[in-house]
Amino acid sequence: MTSSSPRSQQHATRAAFFIPGFAAAVWAPLVPFAKTRAGLDDAALGLVLLCLGTGSLLAMPLAGALTARQGCRRVMLVTTALIVAMLPLLAWMPTPLSLGLVLFGFGAGIGAMDCVMNMQAVAVERDSGRAMMSGFHAFYSIGGLAGAAMTTLLLALGAAPWLAAVVAVVAIVLLALGFAGHWRSERVAQDAPLLAWPRGVVLFIGVLGFVVFLAEGAVMDWSAVFLIEARAMAPARAGAGFVVFTLVMTVTRLWGDGLVERLGRQRAIGLGAALACIGFLLAVLVPAWWVALLGYAMVGLGCANIVPALFSLTGQQKVMPESVAIPAVTTLGYAGVLAGPALVGFVAHSSSIGIALACVAMALAGVALSTRSLMRNLR
């Protein structure tokens, strides 16, 4: 058992959530530059982005099993080192193959960290005796806001993409050095399986997570491209879409625990998914860049507390042990990151980016309509 204080562990958990959110958001404004540098069209970009999701998906079950045997601290140190190693390379890769390989490694680091930080968060929340999950996830959004804003600002000031990536690496290293000593080191179980297939309500929760992560991934990887190609924004400013999305999500999650307690998890998930659906449709249907930004803000507001609520429900269910249910839900949920950007790219290539994003909106409508059934299955 780790010897650090509960308060120190809570702060360290927030730092753990900040790191992957920050790193992923640094990549988002760089996507149009990487697309141009590697000579990719929409379909090819979608295929290359598939590498990021594949790396994440494959790393998650391994990260869960290693955490059970080695503890959160060791695994998060390794994943942070992988993120730091891959991030600068994203700005330099000149071919689709090299970019795809680096994205695979970068995605593995992000995905593994996402899995382990949620395992740590569930343990820290349980020890605290109060709801903390939305607050922890808020720091993922804070990291996203900081990463997107910093990178967009540096690019707007004329900095090269590689320089923005190096500045981000320095920030991540300093943060890890300050908080890694308070990441939990106890081993949860020695016989945890490498891969646990979700079943019952765990599968239901994972499918809903898949859709929400798909929507968030669509904003992260395609918002800048959509604003450039469909709304004629300058490339150096197109990261504003992800910044607005992340800012609204961050503010909403900071008060998310109290909001979810007042609304109840069923209403929080259902109303959030409906609002996000409307946001995507607004961005797609109204031909003005500022309306698109408003739509992204609504997506951030709607999606903000869905994923934290789903992880809390995973901790409440009795179908599967928590130590295997959390990695299973994380893996299935983040499969949305694997499928989402690629599917958006393929649909955009055959029709338009707008139609692809409208399809995401319809999937969110399905989430909104399924919440009553979800709560029935939890009883």
Rank of each mutant, 00 (worst) to 15 (best):
G107K: 08
L227G: 13
V344R: 09
E186T: 02
L155V: 04
L281Y: 04
V329L: 15
L374A: 03
G200D: 05
A339R: 00
G46D: 06
C115A: 14
A43P: 06
A108D: 04
A230I: 01
A15H: 07
L343S: 15
L313A: 10
M117I: 04
G333S: 15
W92S: 08
A363S: 15
A342H: 02
W222C: 03
G264S: 00
R130H: 14
C277T: 14
R379T: 15
A234P: 00
P32A: 05
A81C: 13
A276D: 08
S351G: 00
L332Y: 06
V122A: 13
L271A: 10
D127M: 11
V211R: 05
S370E: 03
M60A: 03
G100V: 08
W162C: 01
M233L: 11
I269N: 03
V84E: 04
S56R: 01
F213K: 02
L338Q: 05
I83L: 11
G336S: 07
P327Q: 03
G129H: 11
G333T: 02
W27F: 09
D127A: 15
A28S: 14
V169E: 01
W289D: 11
I110V: 13
Q70Y: 15
T314G: 14
L259C: 06
F18P: 03
A236D: 14
T36C: 03
M249W: 12
S350F: 14
L301T: 08
V291L: 03
W162T: 10
A273L: 00
V78N: 01
W222N: 03
I19M: 13
L301H: 13
T252C: 12
A189H: 14
A112L: 05
G209E: 12
A358H: 11
A325V: 07
G39E: 13
A348Y: 04
M133E: 07
S134Y: 05
L301K: 13
Q70H: 15
E322N: 02
G135C: 13
Q266L: 09
V367P: 06
E322Q: 14
M1S: 12
G217V: 12
F245Q: 00
V166P: 02
A59F: 08
F17G: 11
L30C: 04
A325M: 08
H182T: 00
L294A: 15
V367D: 05
G217E: 08
G279V: 10
A168F: 04
A215I: 10
M117C: 07
G241T: 07
A268D: 09
G200Q: 05
A28P: 02
I269W: 12
G129L: 08
R74Q: 11
E125G: 08
A325Q: 02
R199L: 01
M113S: 15
V201R: 06
L374R: 00
G264P: 11
L52D: 01
G217P: 00
T152R: 06
V299G: 07
A189R: 15
S141P: 13
G71F: 11
R231W: 10
V347W: 10
L214M: 15
F245M: 05
G55Q: 03
G129F: 12
V329W: 01
L263E: 12
A292N: 05
W183N: 03
G256L: 08
G46F: 07
H137M: 02
V329P: 12
A146F: 10
M76C: 08
G264D: 11
G64C: 07
V201K: 05
